[in-house]
């Protein structure tokens, strides 16, 4: 049951990674590309972590969650800065 959950969640995460990469390559401008990438950070990595949780002890699980949260934080900030610099709202 736990294994099935892991397979489903990690696969769904991988699909989001693939979709995000496709978006990065195929979308026309920086803002839409950023939009595609945020899904990878957020949901893609989130689903992979979520899927791996039942396979881990509580300490390793806490570490995985911390990794996901830190990626959330840095991803959100970097996306904001990139988007603002594209729109020419200072910051650089």
């Amino acid at each position: 049951m736990a294994d099935l959950f892991t397979i489903l969640a990690v696969s769904a995460g991988a699909v989001l990674f693939l979709a995000g990469t496709l978006g990065l390559l195929r979308f026309p401008d920086t803002l839409t590309r950023l939009h595609a990438l945020t899904k990878v950070d957020n949901l893609g990595l989130g689903l992979v972590v979520l899927g791996l949780l039942p396979q881990l002890g509580w300490l390793a699980a806490a570490k995985m969650l911390a990794v996901w949260l830190l990626v959330q934080l840095s991803g959100a900030v970097v996306t904001q800065i990139l988007a603002r610099s594209v729109r020419g709202e200072g910051e650089s």
Partner: peptide, 13 residues
């Protein structure tokens, strides 16, 4: 930039 998101990161991380 006093209200920049980078400031947030530089204070929390």
């Amino acid at each position: 930039h006093p209200h920049s998101v980078l400031m947030l990161l530089a204070r929390t991380l």
